[in-house]
Simulated scan of single mutants.
Amino acid sequence: MKMMDLPELIILDVGHGNCALIRDANDAMVIDCPPGGTLAETLEHLSIKEILHILISHSDADHIGGIIDLLSNEDIKIHNVHINPDAIKKSAIWLDLRIALKDARQRFGTNVSSELTTTKTGSLNIGSVNIEILAPTPELNLGSAGGTDLQGRRLTSNSISAVIGIVHDSHRVAILAADIDNVGFDNLIQDQKSLSADILVFPHHGGRPGSADPKIFAQQFCTFVQPKLIIFSIDRNRFNNPRTEIVEGIISSVPDAHILCTQLSQQCAAALPSSKPTHLTKLPARGLNSNSCCGGTITIKIDGSRTSYAEMALHKEFIVSQVASPICRKFLSIVKPDK
């Protein structure tokens, strides 16, 4: 890996799923491994041959579908994999993952940890970047998917999604919220005194947050985090995310936040742009070939309280000039009549 001045957070456009890469001069960490080739292409593009930690937020296919190929790739050394158990998962891919983890442990010496809870905070740091596991707590995780939390509320795989904080120079730069739902969020805010962060990868791709009202959930989440940049990891052709109620809740809570989707939602543009955007990075992105990227794969230089998304102005220009009816601007006139 080439020497770097600052560590990087890379949020990959993987379509419907989540995937992030943190790297510094010496080490790399992967957070969630969805299906498709984007992660493998990115690792190859960046000449990454060694991964210190893979963190799997939870057991859904759009977060684990790509790890099996990664574990069997003899050209990439994976030192540690951290994942929580999920007894209700009966899918073939979940069984395949467990088999692949056993194989990697026996053949390559990969360490497999069956716990990714708040107790891991401080043990997963990479270079100058501190990694927090903000949720679940060990007690919540002991309830497990299919069980209940301490208030007797039913837990799903989403309820116990690992929520990951990225801290640099004593400043929380980002929160990656995986698919956490309202029950998980209630437990999160009971346990964490502060959740503020500059960047929020919004939960569940902007889809339904469990049984809660989506608008209220978004308002509450953003009130706690107060993000400046909100990212939705979506596929243009699946699930119609982010939900408009989620976007409305965000804008009513943090009207100055910049909203970015990895791909261009059909709600925002029925037809794709005719010209190639100028704000996209050179890194692989699932939507590049079809010109369906909105933010695409984004790279953020991690620099403590000075961390920012360098292409924000160009992305805003793209939204205004090439997107017919962007939902990220739909509710601004209600909150800010002068915009």
Rank of each mutant, 00 (worst) to 15 (best):
I67R: 07
I67P: 04
I67E: 04
L70A: 01
L70Q: 09
L70K: 01
L71E: 02
S72M: 13
S72H: 15
N73L: 01
N73F: 02
N73V: 12
N73W: 01
N73Y: 05
E74T: 12
I76D: 02
K77M: 10
I78D: 11
H82L: 06
P85L: 07
D86Q: 11
I88K: 04
I88M: 13
K90E: 10
S91L: 08
S91R: 14
A92L: 14
A92C: 08
I93N: 05
I93K: 05
W94V: 04
D96F: 11
L97W: 07
I99W: 14
I99L: 15
L101I: 04
L101K: 06
A104N: 07
Q106H: 14
R107S: 15
R107P: 10
F108C: 09
F108L: 12
T110V: 10
T110D: 00
T110F: 11
N111H: 14
V112W: 05
S113L: 11
T117N: 08
T118C: 11
T121F: 02
I126M: 08
I126E: 02
V129D: 05
V129N: 07
N130V: 13
N130I: 12
N130C: 14
I131Q: 07
E132R: 05
L134I: 11
L134Y: 01
L134S: 03
L134H: 01
A135Y: 09
P136E: 08
P136K: 04
P136M: 02
L140A: 06
L142H: 13
G143C: 04
G147M: 06
T148I: 10
T148P: 04
T148K: 00
L150P: 08
G152K: 04
G152S: 03
R153Q: 10
R154M: 15
L155G: 06
S157W: 02
S157G: 04
N158W: 08
S159A: 09
I160A: 00
S161T: 12
S161Y: 09
A162C: 09
V163W: 01
V163C: 00
G165W: 11
G165R: 06
G165H: 11
I166S: 01
R172V: 03
V173S: 06
V173Y: 00
V173R: 03
A177I: 12
A178D: 09
A178T: 14
I180R: 03
